[in-house]
Write a protein that binds this DNA or RNA. Sequence first.
DNA 1: TTCCAAAAGTGACCGCAGGTCATTTTTTGA
DNA 2: TCAAAAAATGACCTGCGGTCACTTTTGGAA
Lengths: 197, 197
Amino acid sequence: MAKKQQEKSQQTMDELMASAVELFGTKGFTQTSVAEITENAGYAKGSFYRHWDSKDELFLQIVERKLREYRDARDPKVSGAHDLEEAMNIIWDFLETIINDRNWSSIFLEFTIHSAHSEILKKLMNKSIYRLSNQIFADLVRAHVRTDFPPEKIGALNTALFEGFLIHRTLGTQVLTIGDVRRAAIALALANGAKNG
Amino acid sequence: MAKKQQEKSQQTMDELMASAVELFGTKGFTQTSVAEITENAGYAKGSFYRHWDSKDELFLQIVERKLREYRDARDPKVSGAHDLEEAMNIIWDFLETIINDRNWSSIFLEFTIHSAHSEILKKLMNKSIYRLSNQIFADLVRAHVRTDFPPEKIGALNTALFEGFLIHRTLGTQVLTIGDVRRAAIALALANGAKNG
DNA sequence: TTCCAAAAGTGACCGCAGGTCATTTTTTGA
DNA sequence: TCAAAAAATGACCTGCGGTCACTTTTGGAA
């Protein structure tokens, strides 16, 4: 059997990824070094690069997995919504759970800005598997839009407000609560997407 | 006279800052090294640290100067506004000029996220001289708010939407135009701050 | 004009980062 | 038992922000 070796390799990847999730989640992306990730998992630095080409690549994999988990918990709920307001409320219940997932939302934000340095990363970050953004929200909201305002823009404005709040929160500013932003985002979506403004 | 030496020192600072403004404005904060800044200005790396304690400190000085310039051009206009809508429109004329100032808005954004790694920097970035944010917009809008919705929150929501759009734009996503965001921000401010919603 | 203290300017050096790769260790199946 | 293949290693590379002992320039007092 040529199985054991693959299994060992997979286990190493899992251990390294678990170590990375722990460290990224505590210290953020930039502040966590590859050497720390491997050391924390009991390997040498070189082992990391047998499994991933770069720190970026590992982070993208973690993001993908986390977003998939979030969505699996969310999508069934949203599809049961009856109108735009209900859909938006479910979306914001979801965004609030993300906000409460340690400080991952801030770390996503950090990586999003980091990705601006590379054209390749930028393109990747526009894909829906790496972003809670645009297309996704648009799709969730589309069925309930009663005006000719593009659902994509409703989704993008929602993301903008959410990510703007993340910046606000990252800096430790206290003026806004997530409730404030939630109300504003829903009001905005309804003004644009519900019959009579 | 002990003047010439001070003058020379000031000239060096000016030259290094001009070099930094040029490079930051082209390549961003992280991608510009201190060695590049000094080399581009014709000095050795060590000279930089005679005038600033860190790359961060120089960047803050540049931000402070740029924001002062922006505001000097804006404040007289806003103070002539007669109602909330007019004030918001003037504010957004101003935000659009910032967006059009090469890619400085994205670089501000980059540094804002960068500052999250240091408590000291975070505190500094909450000061109005380093941010186009919260307090400033609140003050500009306060006189025209006709509800009991806090002007600070109107200002902060406006900033959130603007900075969220910056992220969107930095990633090269095409869904939103600045016009879309402007309309949304003004609608939001009026819904919260004008009589009858 | 001489001279020396203070200021400006220099660049080798430090620690640490992400990433590479020749080498060693372990696993596997014949 | 053994050799090929895969996994693991850590010294090493380049480049970063930042330091500091040193050299050069400057300016005023003797």
